[in-house]
């Protein structure tokens, strides 16, 4: 069952990783074009970037790096990172794990798959966490689990709301059972923050799947999702193999989850700062340094 699940998800990820097809545009350098993995339309990269990496035809919201996400979300220079030097170890001595982490670290400039910290969004203070799918498909191992849990604990202590931009292929299997336990650790920290009256907003981005969907990503007081992104628990192909029939195109999209009742709203990233700051204001947060109010 689960066997092919992760594989399937990964294969789907690889379908559209932002690389345009060479043969369709032989005379244009490929880094000048973006081909939408959802509707296949091709646009010039500069236009795509001007639109904050959204597709002009179907409005698919493409993946952002954590740094890009931070830049379009937080007020300029407001971000103060938490636990930025935490790095993984190799709990089950999985062959070449350290090497892989090192290579990804060099490539992305990240220590692991999530950055956490405190920032302001249009003047409203919040703890934020941003997952970066380039780092081992943003799978959750000890570092992701610990940083998310600490972010919620920090928010609970400082009476701050939490906003998480989720993306993940699921548990980081290279860390064995410890990766599974991060689901309990993070969900527990979310619950404590919630029981203390804290506000938690989840923004589901492409793709949010597996053990992250089955833990903190599904526990927001308010769950937003970007248009056309993939969200699910199980992989598409394993499901297709089970039911032996073609799945609808919109299966496991943000819109599918909205229709099924698991997402509060689809949120366009070009107005995300406004959306988030409005929600914070409606929860009686005041600009800069305000505490949440009970009752």
């Amino acid at each position: 069952m689960l066997e092919d699940l992760f594989k399937t998800v990964r294969d789907r990820f690889n379908e559209g990783n932002g690389e345009p097809e060479k043969k369709q545009a032989p005379e244009i350098p490929k880094d000048l074009l973006f081909k939408c993995p959802r509707c296949q339309s091709v646009i010039y990269m500069d236009e795509f970037e001007k639109r904050k990496k959204t597709c002009p035809t179907c409005n698919y919201h493409a993946r952002l790096t954590a740094k890009e996400r931070l830049e379009i979300t937080a007020d300029k220079d407001s971000f103060k990172p938490l636990d930025e030097n935490m790095t993984s170890v190799n709990p089950i001595s999985f062959p070449e794990y350290e090497k892989k982490v090192k290579a990804l670290s060099d490539l992305t400039g990240l220590k692991d798959a999530v950055i956490t910290g405190v920032c302001t969004i249009r003047g409203y203070r919040a703890v934020v966490g941003i997952m970066d799918s380039r780092f081992m498909m943003a799978s959750m191992g000890s570092v992701v689990g610990e940083k998310i849990a600490r972010a919620f604990e920090y928010a609970t202590e400082n009476k701050l709301p939490v906003i998480l931009f989720t993306a993940s292929g699921g548990a980081r299997m290279q860390e064995g059972i410890i990766s599974l336990m991060q689901m309990a650790k993070t969900a527990g920290a979310v619950k404590r923050h919630s029981d203390a009256g804290g506000l938690y907003i989840t923004v589901l981005t492409d793709p949010t799947t597996g053990g992250v969907t089955a833990s903190f990503a599904s526990l927001g007081d308010i769950i937003l999702a970007e248009p056309k992104v993939l969200i699910g628990f199980a992989g598409r192909r394993v499901i297709q193999d089970t039911i032996k029939q073609k799945l609808p195109d919109d299966f496991q999209t943000a819109e599918f989850l909205l229709a099924s009742g698991f997402v509060d709203a689809i949120a366009d990233r070009r107005s995300m700062r406004k959306t988030l700051s409005n929600i914070l204001r409606l929860h009686n947060f005041k600009k800069i340094g305000a505490e949440w109010q009970h009752g």
Binding site: M1, L2, L5, M183, A184, A187, G188, V190, K191, R192, D195, T213, A214, S215, F216, A217, S218, L219, G232, F233, A234, G235, V238, I239, T242, I243, L247, F251, Q252, F256, S260, G261, F262
Partner: peptide, 28 residues
């Protein structure tokens, strides 16, 4: 269990949410 069921209906009815909620609620 080998794992939660993977199917269209399970996804539609929120397999991820159901598991997440149990984990969080059992914690307290």
């Amino acid at each position: 269990t080998p794992g939660a069921f993977c199917g269209v209906e399970a996804e539609k009815r929120g397999q991820g949410e159901a598991i997440a909620k149990n984990i969080a609620e059992f914690m307290t």
